[in-house]
Simulated assay, not measured.
Amino acid sequence: MNALSGAYDWLTTGANWQGDKGVGNRLAEHLYFSGVALAVSCALALPLALWLGHIGRGGALAVNISNVGRAVPTLAVLVLLTLTPLGEHGDLPTLIALVLFAVPPLLTNAYLGMREVDRAVVEAARGMGMSGRQVFARVELPLAYPLVTAGIRSAAVQVVATATLAAMAGEGGLGRIITAGFNLQNTPQVVAGALLVAALALLVEAVLVIAGRLFDPMRGRAGAAR
């Protein structure tokens, strides 16, 4: 309780929110790392996974290869990238490590979502004269949408939580608050930093859940069916 009350006092102190080392700036850095990494991961993984799921070839191999990456600790990847010439390019090692961490859930969920679409529905659409592109856009993608968005939410939450490791490479983000607390032996600051990361992860997931429902392509169709 003392740590929690101390964390509350730390969070409600205005000085801790100001300046380059304040919560406001660290939060902006954290959102930058997380947002860029998630955007790049989606751009790389989703088109590939959806296409492989559509043609039904090579997807299992791609998913298995991507899942091997989950066994490699993100911190180890970050340290290795920092020691390479990439370490001279600022936050590039951190972004690459986060992208590699986010790709597996995106790739797996998108591919499985496409492959779990009822084949009878796909064949019926083709029997109605739909082209391959129309079947993909009007049948497979809408039906795979729930699993695709679940993968995006999972990747987003994992990236937000893992982005704290950027502090280990000397970069910014909310992880710097936690590491600074450890260095100062300030337990309330450590707890405050952890609470900020947890709150941000929950907020991101909530926003993505709402966005997923708003943009669900089956939303209007379900209403029309009722």
Rank of each mutant, 00 (worst) to 15 (best):
Met1His: 11
Ala3Lys: 03
Ser5Ile: 11
Ala7Met: 10
Asp9Ser: 13
Asp9Ala: 13
Leu11Phe: 12
Leu11Asn: 08
Thr12Ile: 01
Asp20Trp: 06
Val23Thr: 13
Val23Ile: 15
Arg26His: 14
Leu27Asp: 09
Glu29Met: 13
Glu29Gln: 14
Phe33Gly: 09
Phe33Thr: 13
Val36Asp: 02
Ala37Gln: 07
Leu38Ile: 11
Leu38Ala: 01
Ser41Ala: 13
Ser41Leu: 06
Ser41Thr: 09
Leu46Tyr: 00
Leu46Cys: 04
Pro47Gly: 10
Leu48Ala: 12
Leu52Phe: 10
Leu52Gly: 03
Ile55Val: 15
Ile55His: 09
Gly59Met: 02
Leu61His: 03
Ala62Trp: 03
Ala62Gln: 03
Val63Arg: 05
Asn67Gly: 05
Val68His: 02
Val68Trp: 00
Arg70His: 06
Pro73His: 01
Leu75Ala: 14
Leu78His: 06
Leu86Pro: 02
Gly87Asn: 11
Glu88Arg: 14
His89Asn: 13
Gly90Cys: 10
Thr94Arg: 03
Leu95Asn: 09
Leu98Asn: 03
Pro104Met: 04
Thr108Ala: 15
Asn109Ile: 03
Ala110Leu: 06
Glu116Ile: 07
Glu116Leu: 15
Val117Ser: 11
Asp118Tyr: 10
Asp118Leu: 13
Val121His: 12
Val122Leu: 15
Val122Glu: 15
Ala124Val: 15
Arg126Asp: 09
Met130Trp: 08
Ser131Thr: 15
Arg133Ile: 11
Arg133Val: 12
Val135Pro: 06
Phe136Leu: 15
Arg138Gln: 14
Arg138Asn: 08
Leu141Met: 13
Ala144Lys: 13
Ala144Pro: 14
Tyr145Trp: 14
Pro146Gly: 13
Leu147His: 14
Val148Ala: 12
Val148Phe: 08
Val148Lys: 07
Thr149Arg: 08
Thr149Ser: 10
Ile152Lys: 00
Arg153Cys: 09
Ser154Asn: 11
Ser154Met: 14
Ala155Glu: 04
Ala156Val: 03
Val157Gly: 10
Val159Pro: 05
Val160Cys: 08
Val160Asn: 07
Ala161Thr: 11
Ala163Ser: 14
Ala167His: 09
Met168Pro: 00
Ala169His: 03
Gly175Cys: 05
Ile178Phe: 06
Thr179Ile: 15
Gly181Ser: 04
Phe182Ala: 06
Asn186Ser: 03
Pro188Cys: 01
Pro188Leu: 02
Gln189Ser: 01
Val190Tyr: 02
Ala192Gly: 01
Ala194Gly: 07
Leu196Tyr: 08
Val197Phe: 03
Ala198Thr: 05
Ala198Phe: 04
Leu203Lys: 00
Glu205Leu: 08
Met218Asp: 12
Arg219Ser: 14
Arg219Gln: 14
Gly220Asp: 12
Arg226His: 11
Arg226Gly: 15
